[in-house]
Design a protein around this nucleic acid. Structure first.
Lengths: 135, 135
DNA sequence: AACACTATGTAATAATATAACGTTTGAAAG
DNA sequence: CTTTCAAACGTTATATTATTACATAGTGTT
C-alpha cells in the first residue's frame, strides 16, 4: 500500500527501465539494460538513456559514477535525488547505498573556506565488505 | 626547490601527460590530452590511458568521475591518492579540489552501520560558484 | 648474460553516450 | 471536442570514452 503511488507517473519506457534496475541486486549498466529490454520493444540507446535521465531527475535511481552503472534508490520516498553516498567493495564490487543521518547532516551543512555551501553531492566510499575482508 | 623531486621518476609519456594536466586550469579529458600530445609523439589512446592510470596511482592526478576528466593534485605532496573531494559549479563547470581537514577527518573516520570503515573515498559537491551565483 | 619488471608503439575494437530528426501521445486550456 | 503544448517515443547515425591484444624496447638486479 505504502508504495502504491511510487511508480505512478512513470511512462512506459521509464517503467520498463526502472523495473530492471530495481530487480537487480547490483548496479546495472545502460547497455545491459538495453540488451534486457529488447524483448519489450526498446531497441536503441537513446530510449534507455532518456529513461535513465528522467529516473535520475525523479530520484528513483542513482548513477554510480565510478562504475557507470545505475541503482534504484532505497531511501524511503526519496523524491528528488540530490545527495547520494555509496559503499563500494574493491574486491567483489558490491555497491550499497548509505543512508546515515550523521553523514548527510554533515555534508549538507558543509561549508568550504569561501563559505560556499552545496545543495547536492555524490560520495563514493571504497573498502572491503565483510565477506571479502575475511578471505 | 621544494618540488624539484616532484616529477622525478615519471617516464617520458607520464611526464608529457602530467604536464598537460598540470598546466590546465580545468579538468582535462583523455582525448583532449591525446590531441594535444600528438606533436610529442603520443599517437594512440592506450599511451594516454596508461600514463593516466599510473599518475592516478602515484596520486599526482585525480579523476573527476562525474566529468570523465583529470586534474592535477594540488594538495601538498599528496603521495598516494586515496581521498578526494571536489567542488563543481553547475553553471560554469569550474572544478576545485577541496582540502579541508574537518571534512577529511570526518570522512576518514566515518563508520557505517555495520562498523565498516573506508580507506578511500571520492566526494563531488555540486553548487554555484561565487561568480555564477551573482548572475 | 639472464631475469623480471615497467614502459612503449600500434592496430583494432569494445563500451558508453549523445545529436538530430520526425512522429506520437496525453493532459490542459480554450 | 479540438487546439495546443510539452513530454515521451522511435530511429539512424555518430561522438566520446576506454580497453584488448600483441609485439618491442628499456631498466635494474642478480
Amino acid at each position: 500500500m505504502a508504495n502504491m503511488e511510487k511508480e505512478y507517473n512513470l511512462s512506459k519506457n521509464q517503467q520498463i527501465v526502472f523495473d530492471i534496475i530495481e530487480k537487480s541486486s547490483e548496479p546495472v549498466k545502460a547497455y545491459s539494460i538495453l540488451f534486457n529490454v529488447k524483448k519489450k520493444g526498446i531497441k536503441a540507446p537513446p530510449q534507455v538513456y532518456r529513461a535513465l535521465e528522467k529516473l535520475i531527475k525523479l530520484g528513483k535511481i542513482h548513477k554510480v559514477e565510478s562504475k557507470n552503472a545505475f541503482v534504484a534508490c532505497k531511501s524511503s520516498n526519496c523524491e528528488v535525488s540530490k545527495a547520494t553516498a555509496f559503499s563500494i567493495c574493491e574486491i567483489c564490487e558490491k555497491v550499497t547505498e548509505i543512508a546515515n543521518n550523521k553523514l548527510s547532516n554533515f555534508l549538507n551543512s558543509f561549508e568550504d573556506k569561501s563559505g560556499m555551501k552545496y545543495k547536492k553531492y555524490n560520495l563514493e566510499f571504497f573498502g572491503l565488505c565483510k565477506k571479502c575482508k575475511k578471505t
